[in-house]
Design a protein around this nucleic acid. Structure first.
Length: 224
DNA sequence: TTATCGATTCTCT
DNA sequence: GAGAATCGATAAA
């Protein structure tokens, strides 16, 4: 796998990135993930429909600057004031396009991932052990398991330390599913895009949560 | 097993 | 000042 992989639009890259082995190194050790669930986002100036759920939907800002940067780099942002999320920047520089890594299976460094998850969770909950399949389930958990923050990893090259990418073999194209993105409300005209991709039946794929914040659009009533 | 709700802070209007 | 690409605990069933 080389950088040219990321020169395409996020929508093309997203399904192909499934199964990729992502390693992040740190002084504490390294964690390797097998990516199982992603979402595509794009911004202003990109061909295709207006993506109202994207951070770069209107213009370049301080936060989303990395999304306009070179492909094959990381875009990391803080969400809900407490969770970091990792994006893989796509498309040539100047075009905002990225793949949000939602979930993955931890294939190496599980002990370190557990430690980081428990550290972030704090002393509040003592019980509730973390199942292996849930170690990197959801964008916030995934970033926590890898030890990724905006301060330390935003804008970094994915083809240089501390990152390492390895293409899967064989590519698991046969079992790829797609559907609406998660947690993105208020799409223009109520339309959503099937820009979420995951490996069918994989236990690490995050659960779909309907009804968090009512959708801006409702189907016409059949009664009355 | 499924649904609801509080936590917590940054970003952009 | 509102709302956000979420998580995990607790309540309800």
């Amino acid at each position: 796998m080389d950088r040219s992989f990321f020169f395409a639009h996020a929508l093309e890259v997203a399904p192909r990135v499934l199964g990729t082995l992502l390693t992040v190194d740190s002084p504490a050790g390294q964690v390797t993930l097998r990516i199982t669930e992603v979402e595509a986002y794009h911004g202003v100036g990109v061909p295709g429909p207006y993506d109202a759920g994207s951070h770069s939907k209107d213009r370049k800002t301080d936060r989303n600057a990395s999304m306009f940067g070179d492909p094959g780099h990381a875009y990391v942002y803080l969400n809900y004031g407490m969770h970091y999320a990792l994006n893989l920047v796509c498309s040539p520089s100047g075009i905002a396009s990225g793949v949000l890594v939602r979930s993955a299976e931890v294939v190496d460094g599980a002990d370190l991932a557990i430690t980081r998850r428990l550290e972030k969770r704090g002393s509040r909950s003592t019980a509730t052990p973390i199942a292996h399949a849930a170690l990197a389930k959801g964008p916030g958990n995934l970033a926590a398991a890898l030890g990724i923050t905006r301060e330390t990893h935003d804008g970094l090259d994915l083809f240089a330390a501390p990152f390492h990418l390895e293409f899967p073999s064989p590519a698991p194209t046969a079992s790829i599913m797609s559907g609406p993105r998660v947690g993105v409300a208020g799409h223009a005209g109520g339309t959503d895009f099937s820009w979420r991709f995951w490996l069918s039946g994989d236990p690490t794929v995050s659960a779909f949560r309907p009804g968090r914040g009512a959708p801006a659009w409702r189907p016409p009533s059949t009664s009355h």
